[in-house]
Design a protein around this nucleic acid. Structure first.
Length: 801
DNA sequence: ATGAAAGAAGTTGCTTTGTGTACG
DNA sequence: GCGTACACTTTGCAACTTCTTTCA
């Protein structure tokens, strides 16, 4: 039951801003910015993947099932993610047609291209209407002409576009998590582990065999020593022949075709992985995975750790850097062999340089690949340059140091370190690698967010690039990770949580002015919003130097920031009023609303602002003797429930006003807000306020009203039914009469009947005489609410329906 | 190289209790 | 002359955001 959750979450994200489909002119937009317009709609793509609801239990393997065997072009899922619609077609994104594994059972009932995007279970009612969306799509993708030349770099993204970026980021995370889970599971593969164990001899492995009787120190040192021995052995045996995961970028070149680098990692399934274990080569990803498998085989508790290279939430002006160290020439996309390769010999891989097509590789039996190949002409392959990647790893491991129940980072390939957590974070300027989310997957496939262990400025910098910095982001991430989290935390988990919390708590105060902006813990006065104020008395907790040669600025706690509002604002938004004698804590110039206001007092008008502490809950004048006090507009402000006057009751029913009038009691329309249409705001009335003692009376009248309405509907239905019976009986009667008149030689009573009935049709069956003379018994009694007006087409209409 | 400041160019949020005309 | 239904209206400004450039 994982996928539907995500679909729902993404839908919620969409629904949370219904305005985003609002069809309004966007002043500056890149031509062909199709993904931006279309991306949202395509988030729907996740929904159909939902397995049938019969899978009730939290079957986590479902995730694996769904993402088990990505075919076609899954490499991009690892390296660069693109919104599904950027690809030539959906079917190409998730094409499972040639999949013959059991995994596709999950897909069988799935329609990947629903004509109308279906609503997710529990999807918000504010969901985008598909037709509406379609319209917008066409309009913007085809007709949008920027009012001026788009800025080359650093263009400003609209709210819509930014929302698409956010949703893309989320979707990317979900997909990558699923992908990681599959890959992590491969690291448990018995065949792979058995094979890899050959690398370490008995003596090497002895370090991992901990004797519980040893001292804590000795146990810890033994593990470390073992890792320090195994690392170099690994480095010497593993060869990097493919490119691993890179930092992801949104493509500037929106119309361009997506290309996968020819040297991209191409270990796509367990068979590939087993083969890589034998050949001991591949990308950094494969290297880390294989080393993970090896250490797990040695009996260690090992996590596969990935610094997720997601498409960013805030798309910057940076465009994708060129790959460095690519093959000089050669295909830009993996060559696909058009015909089935069942009987063809596998391509020669003995050079270790060739990157055969994905299609052909997946059919190679790993054992067969080891057999000596019959010599055959090999086409000259492009020479591969040395692959240049980030000097910091994207994949590495964490090994549980059993003695202290502590996870130690281990990287055998890039930094070649053991237990050096600060050697993993790349600088912000690294175009190949950005550290935003670091996830560790243990043997059981549980995911732990260990980002805090590796980042120096988690709160000041890293957090700003994560979903937690967006509204509702924390909850979203929690929900995404929930299916990947063990429900029974162990002591080790608790220890680690404390450790990670400690990293965060010990984070130093930022040294640059800009890092204070949006910092969850600190704030500078200069960054205060216009509706924010520092609590008095001010509590300075530090100083920071503003720029070089600048002066020192005081630093305050974020928790000391209070929201201020005008007296009117408190009243309208919270139903509170400023207490008597309170002095404003801040004063800001009033906004001039109208041109006609521009007299003297309009120019230096000011608005006094107060904190919540300075206000109390507003108490409306109470209802006395059934009289409801009204304001100058003759109604009652009811912006929040607390504004109902004492002794009164709010009846939020459309008919409440009418009901109160019928009863002849005093009432006031309840104004719950304003609708801004055109130049003027119009009061939104939701029901009325009456004296508490009339509550039941009013409700009774309303109910009676509703009953009457129901009765009306019921009567209409009854009449319809009776008419049908009448028609039937009339027909029968005619038939009876015609049959009675039958003469010799003329035996076509049916035809006569038909004619008679049709006749009846045309006359609109207003033949009351029938009812009066003979058919009276079929009509409702006169007390049944009287005779309802008969529609002109009523007679014919119901028979056709 | 890095960060601060200023400028540019866009987006967002606040605004907040109608009016005029045709017609029966 | 009065009451009712209905069409028309759909701002504009300042704050804010996010980028670039320039400078130290």
């Amino acid at each position: 039951m994982v996928a539907p959750q995500y679909a729902q979450m993404i839908n919620e994200a969409k629904a949370s801003n219904p305005n985003l489909i609002e069809d309004r002119p966007v002043k500056r937009r890149k031509k062909n910015s199709m993904f931006v317009e279309k991306g949202l709609g395509d988030v729907e793509l996740l929904e159909p993947v939902a397995p049938s609801s019969t899978v009730a239990e939290e079957d986590m393997d479902n995730v694996d099932g769904l993402f088990e065997e990505p075919k076609e072009e899954p490499v991009e899922g690892l390296e660069v993610f693109r919104p599904p619609n950027l690809l030539p077609s959906h079917s190409q994104t998730i094409d499972i047609s040639e999949d013959d594994s059991d995994a596709d059972a999950d897909f069988e009932d799935v329609d990947f291209e629903p004509a109308i995007p279906s609503r997710g279970p529990g999807a918000n009612d504010e969901d985008v209407e598909p037709e509406h969306f379609e319209l917008n799509l066409t309009a913007t993708a085809a007709d949008s002409v920027p009012s001026r030349a788009p800025r080359k770099k650093g263009r400003v993204f609209s709210k819509q576009e930014r929302l698409v970026h956010l949703n893309t980021h989320k979707l990317h995370m979900v997909c990558l998590l699923a992908s990681l889970r599959v890959r992590n599971r491969w690291c448990n593969d018995g065949q792979v582990q058995k094979r890899l164990l050959r690398l370490l001899n008995e003596k090497n492995r002895q370090w991992f065999k901990i004797d519980p009787s040893w001292t804590q120190f000795r146990r810890a040192e033994s593990t470390k020593k073992g890792l320090n021995i195994a690392g170099p052995i690994w480095l010497a045996n593993f060869k990097i022949t493919a490119r691993g995961m890179r930092r992801a970028y949104y493509d500037d070149d929106e119309g361009g075709e997506f290309r996968v680098s020819p040297d991209m990692d191409d270990v796509l399934d367990l068979e590939d992985f087993r083969k890589a274990a034998i050949k001991m080569e591949g990308s950094r990803i494969v290297g880390a995975m294989l080393y993970c498998a090896l250490l797990r085989a040695c009996g260690l508790d090992v996590r596969l750790v990935c610094s997720m290279q997601l498409l960013p939430i805030n798309a910057g002006s940076k465009s994708r850097p060129l790959l460095r160290g690519v093959s000089v020439s050669g295909p830009t996309t993996p060559v696909r062999t058009p015909t089935p390769l069942v009987n063809q010999p596998p391509p020669d891989n003995s050079t270790g340089r060739s990157i055969p097509s994905i299609a052909s590789r997946r059919r190679i039996d790993p054992m067969e690949a080891l057999e000596p190949q019959a010599p055959r002409p090999v086409p000259k392959l492009p020479k591969m340059k040395h692959i240049i990647e980030s000097p910091f790893p994207v994949f590495w491991l964490e090994v549980l140091e059993e003695a202290h129940q502590r996870w130690m980072p281990v990287d055998p390939l890039v930094s070649c370190t053991v237990d050096k957590r600060l050697k993993f974070e790349p600088p912000a300027s690294d175009v190949e690698n950005a550290m935003v989310y670091v996830m560790g997957l243990d043997t059981d496939g549980f995911v732990k967010d260990v980002t805090r262990r590796y980042t120096t400025w988690y709160l000041a910098k890293t957090r700003k690039n994560r979903v937690e910095s967006t509204p509702g982001g924390e909850r979203w991430l929690r929900r995404v990770l929930r299916p990947f989290t063990s429900r029974w935390p162990t002591d080790t988990d608790d220890i680690e949580d404390q450790e990670l919390l400690g990293f965060e708590q010990r984070e130093k105060m930022p040294t640059s002015i800009q890092d204070f902006k949006g910092h969850p813990r600190y704030v500078l006065e200069r960054d205060l919003r216009s509706n924010e104020v520092l609590e008095f008395p001010r509590h300075e907790i530090g100083k920071v130097k503003a720029g070089k040669g600048g002066k020192m600025e005081p630093v305050y706690r974020r928790t000391d920031v209070k929201i201020v509002r005008s007296a009117d604002g408190w009243y309208r938004h919270e139903g509170r009023e400023v207490k008597e004698g309170e002095q404003p804590v801040k004063i800001r110039p009033a906004r001039r609303t109208k041109v006609e206001d521009d007299d003297q007092e309009g120019e230096d008008a000011r608005v006094a602002l107060y904190t919540e502490d300075q206000t109390g809950v507003y108490a409306a004048p109470p209802v006395v003797n059934g009289r409801v006090p009204k304001n100058i507009y003759g109604n009652l402000d009811l912006y929040v429930p607390s504004m109902v006057p004492a002794g009164g009751v709010h009846i939020p029913h459309q008919k409440a006003g009418i009901a109160a009038r019928i009863l002849g009691i005093d009432f006031a329309d309840a104004v719950t807000g304003f609708e801004f249409r055109g130049r003027h705001g119009t009061a939104v009335v939701k029901g009325v306020v009456v004296a508490g003692e009339f509550d039941e009376a009013v409700m009774a009248v309303i109910d009676a009203y509703a009953d009457e309405e129901r009765q009306l509907v019921e009567d209409k239905r009854k009449l319809l039914v009776l008419r049908m019976w009448k028609k039937f009986m009339v027909g029968l009667r005619i038939k009876e009469r015609v049959d009675a008149y039958e003469v010799d030689g003329e035996d076509k009573p049916d035809a006569v009947l038909k004619e008679a009935v049709e006749d009846e049709h045309e006359t609109g069956m207003t033949s009351e005489e029938y009812d009066m003379d003979e058919g009276g018994g079929f009509m409702p009694g006169d007390d049944g609410g009287g005779f309802l007006p008969e529609d002109d087409d009523g007679g014919g209409g119901f028979l056709q329906d």
